[in-house]
């Protein structure tokens, strides 16, 4: 509440309008005690700017569609309380970085999802529905590695936070490599070779500079940095024919 003194019962909200060419429009919305950034964007859309383009679906941090740049940092707007990020009664809301803009706060995520596949993110099953379920030891090291990265919902916050993605179009990015790492640790995944080759190809894990922005900004606390380091280590062990099963 420290930034919301009684005399400022309104928020000054600057929202990006347009595509690459555009401008910030400023709106005044009521400051409420319990208010997320997504609530603010919705309020602007409903009461001030019906043509405002933005994405959301679940509103509770499950779907990963409402991520935007809020006061300079990529965040899930639905899980960000205004009180936590407001700066002197003001909010600046922009689309996520590193993806082409479509309109206002909506970006084109095609490349982001394509890169997910390019890094070997497609699961290949080895059994049919008629086979018994393959047992997996939850205490095994591989399963623990997979569990550490499995909660990713592809919101692209890490992709927007990554400076290497910003300057290297070819780099597949942290989310895609984190996905590959979970597959490489999944005993049920049939194409380990294909995933490792894809994740270590040009633009793959070798392009990461270990800056750690992905890890810092991930809303669910995943460390893609760690996953990428895991792929590098696995790649080295594979080269030496010392890769454990």
């Amino acid at each position: 509440m420290k930034d919301m003194t009684p005399e400022t019962d309104t928020l000054e909200v600057r929202i990006w309008r347009g595509r690459d060419e555009g401008r910030f429009e400023t709106y005044e919305v009521p400051a409420r005690e319990n208010q997320t950034v997504l609530d603010v964007v919705s309020e602007v859309q409903r009461h001030h700017e019906p043509a405002l383009a933005y994405r959301f679906a679940c509103r509770v941090g499950v779907c990963g569609s409402c991520a935007m740049t809020v006061n300079g940092k990529p965040r899930w707007t639905c899980r960000t309380h205004v009180q936590k990020v407001v700066d002197g009664g003001a909010l600046t809301i922009e689309p996520l970085r590193n993806m082409p803009r479509i309109k206002d706060l909506a970006t084109d995520m095609t490349d982001f999802f394509d890169k997910w596949h390019r890094a070997g993110g497609r699961f290949e099953g080895t059994r049919t529905r008629h086979d018994p379920i393959q047992p997996v030891d939850p205490e095994s090291r591989a399963r623990k590695n997979a569990n550490a990265g499995i909660e990713c919902i592809n919101c692209a916050v890490c992709y927007a936070a990554c400076d290497v993605v910003a300057w290297d179009d070819d780099y597949v990015g942290p989310a895609a490599l984190n996905r590959a790492w979970t597959l490489l640790n999944d005993e049920k995944h049939g194409d380990q070779r294909g995933t490792l080759d894809a994740a270590t190809a040009a633009g793959g894990c070798g392009s990461c500079h270990t800056q750690g922005s992905c890890m810092k900004h991930c809303p669910v606390g995943i460390s893609p940095t760690r996953s990428i380091a895991g792929i590098k280590r696995m790649s080295l062990m594979d080269f030496l024919n010392m890769r454990g099963k």
């Binding site: 490792l196 080759d197 270590t200 190809a201 040009a202 793959g204 070798g206 590098k232 790649s235 080295l236 594979d238 080269f239 030496l240």
Partner: peptide, 13 residues
């Protein structure tokens, strides 16, 4: 030579 091999050679060297 694959990227993975170059990566390994650089780290090992």
């Amino acid at each position: 030579m694959t990227e993975a091999r170059l990566f390994a050679l650089q780290r090992l060297s």
